[in-house]
């Protein structure tokens, strides 16, 4: 049985006024349970695509389906509900709330899914254990290292058990050892069934992932899976 696609971009185009074309007719299908790297030079449209996949942005042309929903037909509040329930984000710069401890930061990942406070906190502590930060629960961001901050951010993204985790250069601001730990966590998360999409500049990281989508000037120039080159629209054996 072919697994259902979690993401389906068809001819996705994003243009900005002034003739900037961030995406030019991108077609991409991501199946449930995939772990893929998005690589490419700076300014090639990787973040733009990730934001569109995460429904934070809409394409100027083309269709986007996420978790079985046609994004273009959804109102702001339904899109928000989709993000709250099915999508987790990890950003290069963490975006943690200063002055609030790790548990509270992670618990916010469940706030807009309507989970009561006690339950949010309980699950936040579990998620922190999952990223091996039990011992930093009551630390505020300025008491954490960069790698620890990113692990808190990962815990916040996964605390709601999303189907899809989108990470925009999650290791970009980290040293090698912290970056490796972050990637290890993303692998574990993927192994438990979550679809993970990681933007990275680091070829070594990209090569370690089962699928690599390469970007240039808003277009996908290659899409390789487990070392086997594939055409952009053909579907392979999967992972």
């Amino acid at each position: 049985m072919t697994p259902a696609p979690v993401i389906e971009l068809r001819n996705a185009t994003k243009s900005y006024p002034g003739g900037v074309h961030a995406l030019r007719g991108v077609n991409l299908t991501v199946q449930e349970g995939e772990l893929l790297a998005v690589v490419g030079p700076s300014g090639s449209g990787k973040s733009t695509m990730l934001n569109i996949m995460g429904t934070l942005d809409k394409p100027t042309k083309g269709t986007v389906e996420v978790a079985g929903y046609d994004v273009s037909g959804l109102s702001d509040s339904r899109l928000s509900a989709l993000r709250a329930r099915h999508i987790g984000f990890v950003f290069q710069h963490f975006h943690l709330a200063a002055g609030r401890d790790a548990v509270d930061n992670v618990a916010d990942g469940l706030l807009y899914a309507g989970v009561p406070l006690k339950e949010r906190r309980r699950r936040a502590r579990e998620a922190l254990a999952g990223v091996r930060l039990d011992h930093r629960r009551s630390h505020t961001p300025n008491e954490l290292s960069g790698g620890e901050k990113q692990r808190v951010a990962i815990a916040r993204a996964l605390v709601g058990s999303p189907r899809l985790l989108l990470a925009d250069e999650p290791t970009g601001a980290l040293d090698t050892a912290s970056g490796e730990l972050v990637m290890e966590l993303l692998h574990e998360l993927n192994a438990s069934g979550t679809t993970v999409c990681v933007i990275t500049h680091d070829n070594e990281i990209a090569d370690s992932l089962p699928r690599r989508v390469r970007f240039r000037d808003g277009e996908i120039v290659s899409d390789t899976r487990s070392g086997v080159p594939l055409g952009p629209r053909t579907e392979g054996a999967g992972s």
Partner: peptide, 24 residues
């Protein structure tokens, strides 16, 4: 295509907590 998404309503307590974040 599915269309069953509904955003959760925050409880009054959560509304106050979130509203107080910026003040604290």
């Amino acid at each position: 295509m599915k269309n069953d998404l509904r955003p959760a309503r925050l409880s009054p307590r959560d509304i106050l907590r979130v509203g107080a974040v910026g003040l604290r």
